[in-house]
Write a protein that binds this DNA or RNA. Structure first.
Length: 554
RNA sequence: GGGCUCGUGGCCUAGUCUGGAUAGGGCGACAGGCUUCUAACCUGUAGGUCGGGGGUUCGAAUCCCCUCGGGCCCGCCA
């Protein structure tokens, strides 16, 4: 596609004397593959845009890349040679990937990063899916990606669960999924704390004892965090989340204090009311406390150490943090402090911020246990998929799970990351319309036709001649795949891939209903099978970047 | 008090960065389509002027200002 754009620009440069004219991709496929809006030219040439478009259209001759160019209102629309385009796509689709990689250096994507004091809820699911998807997208365009997870295994949340375990509960061993056991302890603490506010102070003591190396606390700490991680392992496995590198807050918070002390010595940081702060007001941000007046560290203390460690551990060109939008200020401050302390330039760090998953009655509240639990949620969707399958006379538990995960992943990724969305249990997720299942259905349907043809794609030699309008439209859409993925990577938006897939499937399904494939005459049949194959591969690869396994049968 | 963000037909949503061709979809509603490659599909109808106002521009859902409404955040939680 890039060479097509370059080619057209070159021709237009010669005709108009202006280099690098911006070409647009028309939203409406019937308008063409590329368009030149003539408003700018209109200004420079002092002629109406419609007239300019018309005159240019006359001058442009079909060639090896261009099928035709014509004026429509103020636009000069180009139709590319679809046979050439499709041949390129077809040969690419038979290889590893439809995508042309572009080297993008080394990127770390930190995501998930849970507190080890409770099980995950659907907000965590969104985080995990977003982080993993963006890593797949960057990777597919050639970046080396390190997926990192930070286990927050200390701090108040964990301390509260420990206190609860040691002093508020009698049950000393988990029953059922162990992360839920710990989560119950945490909620128990919050409940008691409401009646008895002094407990807050007790939890603080636990944190201090932990930092001083108190044996009883350390033992409990070890047990509880192990239990939570055991539970997470199951949930991660089910979701498909993978990590190349794991960091522990407990392993780096001391280092954080050292960094703060050094900054203090250099006069970059300051003491105030017994606490250490980073003065940021001159940078347009509120000051930030880095060490509490009681000497204990904060979330940001270890975040500084971690930020530094990441750049020491890997030659990173970019360090991405997948964290909810409520922490935007926190990360703006962190990045600025890192820059001031010489850890890394702020532009090398990026906060991939995403909106909350809300309940119909409002925000989820972990502290009160008012959350939609991740495991229960997945079970419920799987149950729905299972029922849907049985209504079709199919009893296949594994397939139900795959369909459920397709639906969940697609649903969570199809919205723009920055948007909040409401999860309502009554409405649940859809298996039809704009959904992951719709895309899966289209994929399976194509696979089925290809199988029934009895011809392996490798032996097809399509000429792609005599394509009709619908086939040309599909070709244009397939050719837009590369640009879509590039945009998704640049803007950190897997949603662009999801919406592209919906559009591609709509276009294909519509085509499918009006164009018989298996009964078509030979040349046409080859064209249609090959075109279907390209679409199928684009779907497969697109789904892959959303971490959804394309199904051959559903 | 300050900062950020969202507001598109009954409901959900794309497009907003980089202003342009009649604002795309989906759900729901209504009317159709399975002796034919998977009907979890397809076709058609009704329904929006993009929260409100002003400005910039040949041109604004998109940029700027004001305003209303929702959400989030503002030194010792994470």
């Amino acid at each position: 596609m890039k060479e097509y754009i370059a080619h057209i620009r070159k021709i237009l440069g010669k005709k108009t004397g202006i280099k690098d004219l911006q070409l647009e991709v028309p939203r409406e496929l019937s308008h063409g593959d590329l368009a030149l809006p003539c408003y700018q030219l209109s200004k420079e040439k002092k002629a109406p845009p419609g007239k300019i478009a018309e005159e240019l259209a006359k001058e442009i001759q079909p060639d090896e890349y261009i099928e035709s160019a014509n004026a429509l209102g103020p636009y000069l629309n180009f139709f590319l040679k679809k046979d050439r385009l499709l041949k390129e796509l077809f040969s690419a689709s038979k290889k590893k990937s439809l995508l042309e990689p572009q080297s993008q250096g080394t990127v770390m994507v930190e995501y998930s990063s849970p507190n080890l004091n409770k099980p995950m809820h659907i907000g965590h699911i969104r985080n995990n899916l977003l982080g993993y998807s963006i890593s797949l997208i960057l990777e597919s365009l050639g970046s080396k990606v390190i997926r990192a997870n930070l286990y927050n295994d200390r701090g108040m949340g964990v301390s509260e669960a420990i206190y609860s375990y040691l002093y508020l509960s009698e049950k000393k061993e988990p029953e059922g999924k162990p992360d839920h056991f710990v989560g119950d302890l945490y909620v128990l603490f919050r409940k008691k704390q409401k009646e008895n506010p002094e407990l807050e102070e007790k939890a603080r003591e636990i944190l201090k004892r932990y930092e001083q190396g108190d044996k009883e606390v350390l033992e409990a700490w070890k047990k509880l965090t192990q239990w939570v991680m055991q539970g997470y392992e199951e949930t991660y496995k089910r979701l498909g989340s993978k990590f190349d590198k794991v960091y522990w807050e407990s392993g780096i918070f001391q280092e954080g204090k050292k960094i703060v002390e050094e900054g203090l010595k250099k006069g970059i940081l300051a003491k105030k009311d017994g606490a250490v702060i980073a003065p940021l007001e001159s940078h347009g941000l509120p000051d930030k406390v880095l060490i509490k007046s009681d000497g204990t560290s904060l979330y940001i203390t270890q975040d500084l150490a971690l930020a530094k460690k990441k750049f020491e551990d890997y030659p990173l060109d970019k360090s991405i943090y997948v964290v909810g939008s409520e922490q935007e200020l926190h990360f703006a401050q962190l990045f600025k402090i890192c820059e001031l302390l010489g850890i890394a330039k702020a532009e090398k760090m990026h906060h991939l911020s995403y909106g909350l998953v809300l309940l119909p009655e409002g925000r989820m509240k972990s502290r009160e246990g008012k959350v939609v639990d991740a495991d229960e949620f997945l079970d419920k969707i799987t149950q729905l998929a299972s029922e849907e399958l049985s209504s079709r006379g199919i009893d296949n538990k594994a397939l139900a799970e795959k369909i459920a995960l397709s639906a969940v992943k697609f649903y969570m990724l199809m919205f723009e990351p920055r948007k909040d969305f409401v999860y309502s249990p009554e409405q649940s997720l859809s298996f039809e319309g704009e959904s992951g299942v719709y895309v899966q259905y289209t994929h399976a349907r194509i696979q089925s036709v290809l199988e029934k043809s009895g011809i392996s794609p490798g032996t097809l030699r399509p000429a792609f001649s005599q394509l009709n309008t619908e086939e040309k439209r599909l070709a244009s859409l397939c050719a837009a795949f590369q640009k879509t993925v590039e945009a998704a990577a640049e803007r950190h938006k897997p949603s662009l891939i999801a919406t592209y897939l919906i559009r591609l499937c709509q276009e294909y399904n519509s085509y499918y209903h009006t164009h018989p494939i298996l009964t078509a005459e030979k040349a046409q049949k080859e064209n249609r099978l090959a075109l279907s194959y390209i679409v199928k591969e684009a779907i497969k690869e697109g789904l892959r970047m959303l971490d959804i396994e394309a199904l051959n049968r559903i």
